[in-house]
Amino acid sequence: MFNERVINILQESFFKILIPGITHTIPLTLVSFAIGLFLAIVVALVQVSNVRILNPIVKFYVWVIRGTPLLVQIFIIFFGLPSAGIVLDSVPAAIIAFSLNVGAYASETLRAAILSVPLGQIEAGYSIGMNYFQVLRRIILPQAFKMSVPPLFNSFIGLVKDTSLAANITVTEMFMVTQRIAAKTFEPLALYCEVAVIYLIFCTVLSKVQHMAEKSLKLEQG
C-alpha cells in the first residue's frame, strides 16, 4: 500500500493539511475553549450560588446542550438560523456552537469541583468572619480550579478533535482539506491516517502541557 506514489502524496499533502490545522483548527479550538470556559464559570457560579431567575435558565441551557448532538447544534446554527433571519459565516457559527458546547460540559466539571471543596473549610472561612464572596474567592475557587485542571484538559483535547465537525459547514479546517485531497487522489486510507496522525500530534502536545500544568500546580500529591 505504501508505494512510491502514496509516499509522494503523503509528503505533498502533509503541509497542505498541517497549515489549515494551524490557521483554523488551533485558533478555532483556542477561541471556542476560552469563550466556553468563561461561560462555564458563569454557569457554574450561577448554579452553586443559586442566583434567582438565572439559575433555571442556565440549567435549561446545560440540559439542552448536553442532550443534543454537537453536529445537530452546528447545523441548527449555520443552516437553521438563516431561516430565522440570522445569517452567520461558517467560522463564527462554528465558534458559537463549540463555545456553547464547552460551556455546558465544563460548567458541570467546575460545579462538581466546587461542590467537592470540603464543607469544613468553608465553615472555617465563615468562622473567621468571611462573607460569602470572600469564601468563594479565597477558599472555594482556588481549590476548585486546581481540581478542575485534569477534566478541563479532557474537554480541551476533546474539542481539538470535535473541530473536525466544522468541515460539515464549509470551514476549511484540517479534515475538510484532507477530504478534498483524498477525493482527488483516491487514497483515502493513507490520507485519513495522515490527518489522524496530525490530530494525534496536536493532542500529544496538549497532554504534555497538561502534565506540566499539573506538575506546577503540585496536583500529583493531591
Partner: peptide, 12 residues
C-alpha cells in the same frame, strides 16, 4: 474564634 473537631485548615 472557632476550633473544630477536625481542624479544617485551608488545604491550599
Amino acid at each position: 474564634g472557632m476550633v473544630f473537631q477536625s481542624f479544617h485548615l485551608f488545604s491550599h
